[in-house]
Design a protein around this nucleic acid. Structure first.
Lengths: 214, 214
DNA sequence: TGTACATCAGTGAACGCGCGTTCACTGATGTAC
DNA sequence: TGTACATCAGTGAACGCGCGTTCACTGATGTAC
C-alpha cells in the first residue's frame, strides 16, 4: 500500500468508485479521501476529472487490446480465416484472463466500467474510447463477419449488438445478479461459470437460423 | 401544448431529458425551463427530484404492466399454460404497442429509461421499482419457466438475464445504433424491424441446446 | 566540495458555480352561513 | 346575494452545500559551474 505512487492510488480508488457509483455520482473528494491523497493531486497528475476517467480506462483497456490483437494475428496466420464464433469470443475471455489473471473481482469491475461507458451519457469519454480503441473493435468485427459469412450485413449487425448487450449487461450487473441468485435460489456462482454459459449463448444467437423476413 | 397542466408538462420534459442525459446529469432547472414552468413547481407538485423520477416511471409503467397482466391472464385461461417463449415476448411487444401506439419515439425513449434504471446507480429508484412492479415481473418469469420446462433453474436464470440484457441494451441505445448503421452501411431501420429480429434472438437464446456442463 | 538555481511532487485554502430545496407570498376558485 | 374564510396552483428570491478547479506555496531532489 505505502509503496504505490500517488497517481496509482488515485487510479485504484477512482476505478473502484466509478464502477460502483458511476461517473457523475463519484466526486473527486470521494476519490482522494479513499486514496488518502490531497484533493488537488488529481488535477496535478491528470489535469481534470475527465482526463482521470480516460486514464482509468486506458490503464486496463490498453494491455487488453494489445493482447487481443496479438492473439488475433497469430491465430489468423496459423489457420487462415477459419476462426469460429466460439473461438473468437473465447479469445476475448482468455485475453481478459491473461490481463486480470487471478483477480476476478477486478475483471467484473472492469466489465462494469465498460457497461457504464456504454450506457452512461459521457460524450467526451465515448469520443475518447472510439478514437483510441475503435480500430481494434472494427478489426474484431471483421473476424466475426468471416465467421458468419452467409448472413445479411444488416441482420448480422443487429445480432452482434444483441450479443454485445447480453454480455455487457450481464457482466456489468454481475454483482447484483449474483446476490439475487443467492437469495432467491440459494445458489452461488463464480464469474468463470457465467462466462462459459455466456459464450455459447452469444455464438448461438449470432449464428441462429437465418430466417427470411416473415 | 397550452392545454396540458403544469404537472404534465413537467413529466413530459423530465421523461425526455432523463432519457437523453441520465438522472444525475439532468437538473431541475433544465426540466423546468424546458417545460416552461417555475422551478419551485417541481417540489410543489412532486415533493422532490427523486419523487419526480418515480412519477415518470409510474406514468408509463403502470398502464403497461396492467395491460400485460390482463393479456397474461386471458391467454392463460384460454389455453392453459402452453404459451411459447415467442408468444410471451410477442405479448410484451404488443402490449407496448398498445400503450405507446403510434409513437415509436416515445417507446424507444421509454426503453432507454428502463435501461438507465437498470444500469445507473439510483438505489432509491431501483427499490421503488422493485417494490411497485416486482410482482408482475415475477409472474412473467413463471410463464417463461413453464415455456422452458426442462432447463435447470440456474441455467435458465442466466439465459433469461442474457436475453434481458440483449433487449434492454439494444433498445436503450437504439438511437445511437441507428445512426451507426446509417453512417457505416447506408441502411435505415425502424424500431419494429429491430423488435422482430430481437424476439427470435431472445427465444432461441433461452431455448438453445441444453448442454451438459462441459 | 560548495553554492545557486531549476524542477518536481504535493499541499491547504479558497474560488465561483450550479445544485435541490425552502419559504413567504400572490391571486384565483370554492365553500359556509 | 353578500361576506368571510379556506384551499389550491403557482411564483420569485433566497438558502446552504458540495462540486471541480485554481493558485500561491513548501520542501525535497537534481543539475551546473
Amino acid at each position: 500500500m505505502g509503496k504505490s505512487t500517488t497517481a496509482e492510488r488515485i487510479l485504484d480508488a477512482a476505478q473502484i468508485l466509478f464502477a460502483t457509483k458511476g461517473f457523475s455520482e463519484t466526486s473527486l473528494r470521494h476519490i482522494t479521501s479513499k486514496a488518502g491523497v490531497n484533493l488537488a493531486a488529481v488535477n496535478y497528475h491528470f489535469g481534470s476529472k475527465e482526463k482521470l476517467m480516460q486514464a482509468v480506462f486506458e490503464r486496463t483497456l490498453t494491455p487488453f487490446c494489445d493482447n487481443l490483437e496479438k492473439q488475433l494475428l497469430t491465430h489468423g496466420q496459423n489457420r487462415g480465416a477459419t476462426l469460429s464464433l466460439e473461438e473468437l469470443f473465447g479469445m476475448m475471455v482468455s485475453t481478459a484472463d491473461g490481463v486480470y489473471g487471478d483477480d476476478s473481482k477486478e475483471f467484473s469491475r472492469f466489465m462494469r466500467l465498460m457497461g457504464l461507458a456504454y450506457t452512461q451519457t459521457q460524450e467526451e469519454l465515448r469520443a475518447f474510447l472510439g478514437e483510441r480503441y475503435g480500430m481494434v473493435f472494427k478489426r474484431f468485427l471483421v473476424y466475426i463477419k468471416l465467421a458468419a459469412p452467409e448472413m445479411a450485413p444488416k441482420e448480422l449487425f443487429w445480432r452482434i449488438h444483441f450479443a454485445l448487450g447480453a454480455a455487457v449487461f450481464t457482466l456489468a450487473s454481475f454483482g447484483g445478479l449474483q446476490e439475487v441468485l443467492q437469495k432467491d435460489y440459494g445458489m452461488s456462482v463464480g464469474l468463470p461459470d457465467v462466462v462459459t454459459r455466456l459464450v455459447p449463448f452469444m455464438a448461438a444467437g449470432i449464428r441462429g437460423d437465418v430466417e427470411k423476413e416473415s
